[in-house]
Structure formats: structure tokens, C-alpha cells
Computed example of a mutant assay.
Amino acid sequence: MHSEKASWGLKLAAWGGLVFLHFPIAIIFLYAFNTESSGFSFPPQGFTLKWFGVTFARADVLEAIKLSLEVAAIATLIAMLLGTLAAAALYRRHFFGKESISMMLILPIALPGIITGIALLSAFKTLGIEPGLLTIIIGHATFCVVIVYNNVIARFRRTSHSLIEASMDLGADGWQTFRYIILPNLSSALLAGGMLAFALSFDEIIVTTFTAGHEKTLPIWLLNQLARPRDVPVTNVVAMLVMLVTMLPILGAYYLTKDSEGVAGSGK
């Protein structure tokens, strides 16, 4: 009989892979509490919360956080609406061109971000729209829709259509069927898709660079900080914040969908 326990070599390889992936993240978390003002001294000289106070006292940091949260929230709401409607239209009906439409919906997440950014900037310039808050939101919504669509259509495919037919046969109208049958079945997939979309929007930088104009989201603020070595401790604190804001929704989405066939964010 084969043992169900993994060999020591396999365990070592697995732990080595985890350390390789997460060591840089752990270092950023460590540096955020470092007393040394240079920010990159190892081992850390001591433990302090000073840099958190310095960070949240800066108006430019707070403005960047506010803008990123605003963009992510609005882009996520747009994505949840459009992604759900697209999934509802495509999950069961068969018609000419359905596969092409499905491919076009998924395409934005497959394209390199720089291509998407150039395409969006060209489209905005052609339409005479100046880069700003609106263009950032539109740019983020293009790939956030895909995340929500993937989650919702996977759940639609596992929802028995007989439940919907039974609801209609028992006298429920379309709204009642949606409210009491469809929405409860979609709720966890929709929430997971929204959480993933929010996380991806919050830390997106490539598309944002082409569509932001003079606006500065938090990732763009971080990029600009690379040329300011005196602000390294503040940069470390902001980097840790970005990682937390993006990591927690992704973990939440994973736990919401881990027992389902459709893995949250599988399109990414």
C-alpha cells in the first residue's frame, strides 16, 4: 500500500516554494516597523509604530488612499452589474456568435496591461475625453468585469434550472424568482467576484498609468516614491497597507468559493 504522507523531499520542496514566494512580503512587513530611518537595515534596529503616525499625517498619502478606494469601489460596482448581466445572458442560451462574445468578455484579462492601457488611452483621445477619475474607473472596470463574470457564470452553470421553472410554475414573477431563487444561489459567487475585482483594482498600476492623467492612485504614489530614498519608511508602511487591502479580499474570495467547481478569479 502507498503511504498517504508526503515524502520529506516533497515537503521540503513545498516549504521552500512558500518561503521563496513570501519572503519578500515578510521583509516589507518587518521594515514597516523598523526604527532605522533608512528603512532597509537588516536585521532591524528595533520595533516602532512611529512611521504609521508619520504616514497617516501626510496629506498626499491620504489623498492617494481615498482615490484608490473610490476607484476600486466604483469599478467593482460597475463590474458586478455588467458581469452578472453578461453571465445571465450567456450561461444557458445558445445562439450564433455566443463563443465569440464570451471570448471578447474574457479578452481584457488575457491582454498585457500595457496593451490595454495604450488602447484605452487612444480611445479616450479619439473621443476627446481627458484622462482623470472617469478614465481610471472605465479602465479598471474593463478587467474587473471579467472576474465577476467568471465567478457568476460558473455558479449559474451549477444552478438547476428546474428551480427557476418551479418558481415560475408556482406563480412567482420574474423579480420574485430573481430575489428568492437566483440571488441566494449567486450571492457567494457574486461577493467573491466583487472582492477579487476590488483587490485587483486597488493595486492596479499599468493600465492606471495610461489613464490617470494627473491623478495619483496609491500604486502610482508608490512608484513615484522610488526616486525619494528619504521617504523609505513611509513607503514601506504604504506598501504593507496595499498588500493587506489586496490580500484580505483575495483570501475571503478563496474561502467563499473553495468548495465549488469554479475557482474564484480563474480567469486571471
Score class of each variant (00 low, 15 high):
4 E>T: 10
5 K>R: 13
9 G>K: 00
9 G>N: 03
12 L>S: 14
18 L>Y: 06
19 V>M: 13
25 I>H: 11
25 I>V: 15
27 I>K: 09
27 I>L: 02
27 I>D: 04
28 I>T: 09
29 F>Y: 13
33 F>W: 10
44 P>A: 09
65 I>N: 01
67 L>N: 03
69 L>S: 03
69 L>P: 07
69 L>V: 00
70 E>A: 01
72 A>M: 07
76 T>L: 05
81 L>E: 09
85 L>S: 09
89 A>G: 03
101 I>P: 12
101 I>V: 15
102 S>L: 15
106 I>C: 11
107 L>F: 00
108 P>S: 10
114 I>P: 15
121 L>Q: 06
121 L>K: 02
122 S>F: 03
124 F>V: 05
133 L>D: 08
133 L>T: 07
134 L>F: 15
136 I>R: 05
137 I>P: 02
147 I>N: 02
147 I>D: 01
151 N>S: 14
155 R>S: 12
161 H>E: 09
166 A>W: 00
170 L>N: 12
174 G>P: 04
179 R>V: 14
180 Y>H: 11
187 S>A: 11
189 A>G: 12
192 A>Q: 14
196 L>Q: 03
196 L>M: 12
197 A>T: 02
204 E>C: 01
213 G>S: 10
216 K>M: 13
216 K>Y: 01
220 I>H: 00
234 V>C: 12
244 L>T: 09
